[in-house]
Design a protein around this nucleic acid. Structure first.
Lengths: 241, 241
DNA sequence: GCAATAGTGTCTATCAGACAATATAAG
DNA sequence: CTTATATTGTCTGATAGACACTATTGC
């Protein structure tokens, strides 16, 4: 006797996502900017439970009707807080466990974003740029201290073997300015010659032809070249002092 | 007039995770093993909708009562399919979008696992070891072709600058055997001297004192040293030919 | 001894660290 | 001219690629 098989269409017709006990699923973003030699991160004061009134990384639930994917959720959260549309966004890792959120089992997809601090306009209420070291000393919501630490460590690692920090720069910048930003991220100074040599050997940057008139000798201005791929890695790492 | 504030306890008492429209959340694992010069991956034939009868990476939903975190979910799925308890497990990335699962918005946390192929016993029904190249040519369930490709690429990258492939080896192994496994992963041959030199300069491996009696000259056996940290990286990469 | 695999010696090329030297602007 | 910053020259040390060489075993 053949029991008629249920087709996939039959199955999906009877399926409701709410029938399953799913964990909470969120996106959190560590938004980094360098302000006058200080690496800062964007914090938001939570207006709702849980962790009401605590500072937290911006983040939240995907909008299942509005967001087509998780990166879009992260971009939307960023736009809501900074008004900026297309900063550099990179996934760091995902944490899921029973204890990080008092509402129950929850999973978060952690991203970091890099943007030109000077471009950020007025902030939404209850939003603040905080030096990363100071943010890590605050009692942030949920496990956001750990998340922020993980995101900064990733940014530091990639600063040693990629040109990622240029995504924190304005449209045009000098090599000295880029080096200072890298030093700010890493927390120590870098060898000027090594820093410049590895960039010269690649096509990552293009001279704009303009100069930055500084107090003394003017410096060449560069922009990110059109052919640069963000997955580029240098053959060696900068010192890990 | 003061409206009494709702405390976090009040809030949580009234909260139910089911009130929110959450995406589906799963873990998928690419389980790798090297069998006689071939990189293989463990596939499972799906017995349920959606994608019934298609081959897929082992995975599934976290057990909100039984799993304390996501890594434990991945370990549990592995144990169910291979009977092995503690293979090497590493998170690769997370994919979340509206289209990858016909049931609706879904997020998956992708891991890869490395294990000694020889240690795997009999498989559960509808489970099969498949050469990765062949698996990628099959019409796998959901977006698992992409997931498998991403996992293999990550394994290949880390083979160039870490000692990760030793997690695919038995307890004791020779340097030639380890090199062959690396070559299998990368799909091309490696310089013997470079390969050995970089290992000698570290404390990653320890001689067991035993020798492997091969057909010709016997080879020293090594095991992973007790002090090795899996986050170790070599200063340079092996050729990316 | 011969063949085959294990393991070593060593030269070269590349690239980061160190730091000295030169270039160019303001004042 | 002096000074500060930008930019370059160049020597050294570390490490990967290439490849020839030696060592050890079974036959």
């Amino acid at each position: 006797m053949n029991i008629p098989e249920q087709t996939e269409e039959d199955y999906l017709r009877g399926y409701s996502a709410q029938d399953f006990h799913a964990p909470l699923c969120t996106v959190d973003v560590a938004v980094f900017g360098v302000d006058d030699g200080v690496l800062k991160v964007l914090l938001v004061r939570r207006r709702d439970h849980p962790c009401r009134d605590r500072w937290a990384l911006p983040g939240g639930f995907p909008d299942l009707s509005g967001d087509s994917d998780i990166a879009q959720t992260a971009h939307r959260k960023l736009r809501e807080k900074t008004g900026l549309d297309a900063p550099y966004l990179e996934q760091v890792e995902s944490i899921g466990n029973a204890t990080r959120d008092p509402r129950g089992w929850s999973v978060t997809l952690l991203y970091f974003a890099l943007l030109d601090f000077a471009k950020v306009g007025a902030l939404v209420d209850d939003t603040e740029w905080v030096a990363v070291d100071e943010a890590l000393a605050r009692p942030l919501a949920f496990d956001h201290v750990t998340l922020l630490q993980t995101a900064r460590t990733r940014l530091q690692s990639k600063t040693r073997y990629t040109a990622l920090p240029m995504r924190l720069m304005p449209e045009a910048f000098t090599l000295s300015e880029l080096q200072q930003v890298c030093e700010t991220i890493l927390g120590h100074s870098l060898e000027k010659k090594s820093f410049r040599r590895r960039l010269e050997k690649t096509d990552i940057l293009t001279e704009t032809g303009e100069m930055r008139p500084t107090s003394r000798r003017p410096a060449k201005l560069y922009r990110i070249s059109g052919t640069h791929r963000d997955d580029f890695v240098f053959p060696g790492m900068l010192e890990a002092r």
